[in-house]
Structure formats: C-alpha cells, structure tokens
C-alpha cells in the first residue's frame, strides 16, 4: 500500500517538477532530441547499408559445370554430395536441356543454331547453381567442390567476390563504429545536461535527506523524471524518423542509384527504429538522472 502511494506521488512529482523547472527541462529535452535524431538517422543508414550488402552477398552464385559424359544418375549423386557440405544454402540443377532451352529463348541466333542440334547430341554441359550461407567461406567451399570427380569448371567470379567482401566488411565496420560513437556521445551529453539540472536542485536533495527520506526514495522521483524527459525528448526524433524516411523512400522509389541498392521497406522498419530511439531515450534519461543524483546522496 505504502509502496503504491509513494509511486503515485513520485509520478505526480515528476510531472510537477518538469513543469516547475521548465527551462532546464527544455534544455535537457532538446539536447536529447537533437542527439536522438542523429542516432535515429545513423540507425536508418547503417541498417540500409547492411541491407545492400546482404542482398549483394545473396546474389553471389557458384556455377559448377560437369563433364560431358555425366549420366543423369551421377547428376543426382553429385548433387547429394555437394549438399552435404557445410556452407551450402541452396543448390539448383540445370541440365543441359534446360540450359539449351534457356539460351534459345535469349536470342534468335542461338535459337536458329541450336535447333539444328540433334536431341542426343547436346554440346552443352549439365550444371549446378549454388548459393552459400557464408560468403566469406566461399573459397573453401569451391575448393571442396573442385575435388569432386566429373566436376570440370567452377566459376564464382573469383577476385571480384573477395573485393566485394572486403568492401562490405569495411563499410559495415565503419557504420557500426559511427553508431556506437554516436550513442556514447549521446549518453555523455544527456548525462551532463541532466547533471546540470540536478545540480540546481542540490538544496532540494539535501532537505530531503534532512527530513529522513531514504536514498532510494530520493532517487526514484529523479529517475522517473529522467524517464519522462527521455520520453518527451524522443518524440521529435521519432516523428523525424517516420515521416523523413517515408518521404525519402517515396522520393527515390525505394532504391538508390540502381536496383541493386534497394532501400528497406518503411514498414515495419521505421517502427522498429522508433522503438529503439524511444528505448535509448528512456534508458539514457533514467541512467543519467540516477547517476547525477547519486553524487549528492553521500553524507
């Protein structure tokens, strides 16, 4: 009962004191807003960059050509063998007949030439189209496949793929570092702003101690106030995230420069980012006030 009463009072007091210390609250709230906007933007960007790299990675295909004399039965057994390897995401069989049909559809010249080929004398080869789980281990997988009997050519764009992987790794690392730095800077800024606002209320805290408030009961109202300030501070960043991203997405029709760089669809993406921004705001607000008050709780 007493706990509920205290909690109700704390919430009421948190609202009251945000109002009473209006200018300081505005200072904290705008500081949180600005930094959270930056955090929100960097989240949007880093997630999109991640998305680009993932799509491109998924596109990398190993093409395996088998020797001319492979029988249909062998086609099946080799497929099973390859499927047993660790890193295989999918394997599609493309028989020489299918390859022929496909090529004939591609151009009239091919069609004219290939039509003259007798059914049983197809110079094309059976092949597999393989996608891997982990593109970084593609080399090892290729080496394994090469060792299989009847495998003649394995092609996966060597060199190109390695370069791409390195580039992606670099981009991902850079965006990750930027996001982390931003979050740390945000926390630092917010904690300091809240410290300033609490410094001006040192007297209030000392009087609370004097009349016998326990450290916890002094801390809780400030922590709740911090949560409130964090929540208020994340309103503008969330609005910016939601409307800004949707506008950006619509303007570029969901892709940047080329269809290869597809933007992440706004829903539910923007809501997830908004939730993250809100949670960061609340936690940082709580944490900031809690730490700032602690300084004044020692006798």
């Amino acid at each position: 009962m007493k706990l509920f009463r205290m909690f109700g009072r704390n919430i009421r007091d948190a609202f009251k004191s945000v109002g009473r210390n209006f200018s300081l609250s505005i200072a904290s709230i705008s500081c949180i807003s600005i930094t959270l906007i930056v955090v929100g933007l960097s989240l949007l960007i880093s997630y999109n960059v991640n998305n680009f790299t993932e799509t491109i990675k998924k596109d990398v295909t190993i093409v395996v050509f088998l020797s001319q004399d492979t029988t249909e039965e062998e086609l099946g057994t080799i497929k099973d063998e390859i499927e047993k390897f660790d890193n295989i995401a999918s394997i599609v069989v493309k028989t020489k007949e299918e390859a022929k049909k496909e090529m004939m559809l591609e151009s009239e010249i091919f069609e004219a030439t290939m039509n003259t080929w007798p059914e049983e004398d197809n110079p094309l080869r059976d092949s597999y189209l393989i996608k891997v789980d982990d593109i970084e281990k593609i080399n090892e997988t290729v080496e394994l496949i090469k060792k299989i009997e009847k495998v003649e050519v394995v092609d996966y764009g060597e060199g190109m793929v390695e370069q791409l992987i390195d580039a992606f790794k670099l981009v991902q690392r850079i965006t990750l570092v930027i996001v982390i730095i931003l979050i740390v800077v945000t926390i630092f800024l917010i904690v300091n702003t809240i410290k300033l606002t609490i410094f001006s209320r040192k007297r209030e805290i000392s009087i609370m101690r004097l009349v016998g408030a326990s450290n916890l009961s002094i801390k809780i109202p400030f922590v709740i106030e911090g949560m409130l300030i964090g929540t208020l501070g994340s309103i503008i960043p969330i609005v910016v995230t939601i409307y800004g991203y949707v506008a950006f997405y619509d303007k570029f029709n969901g892709q940047v420069f080329s269809p290869l760089f597809k933007l992440v669809a706004p829903e539910p993406f923007i809501y997830i980012v908004s939730a993250i921004v809100l949670v960061i705001g609340i936690i940082v607000g709580m944490f900031g006030s809690g730490r700032a008050v602690r300084k004044y709780l020692k006798v």
Partner: peptide, 9 residues
C-alpha cells in the same frame, strides 16, 4: 514534505 518523503497517508 517531511511526511510525504517517508510515505505517510
């Protein structure tokens, strides 16, 4: 205030 901080009714 002195009574509120100690959680009186």
């Amino acid at each position: 205030f002195a009574l509120e901080v100690i959680g009186a009714k």
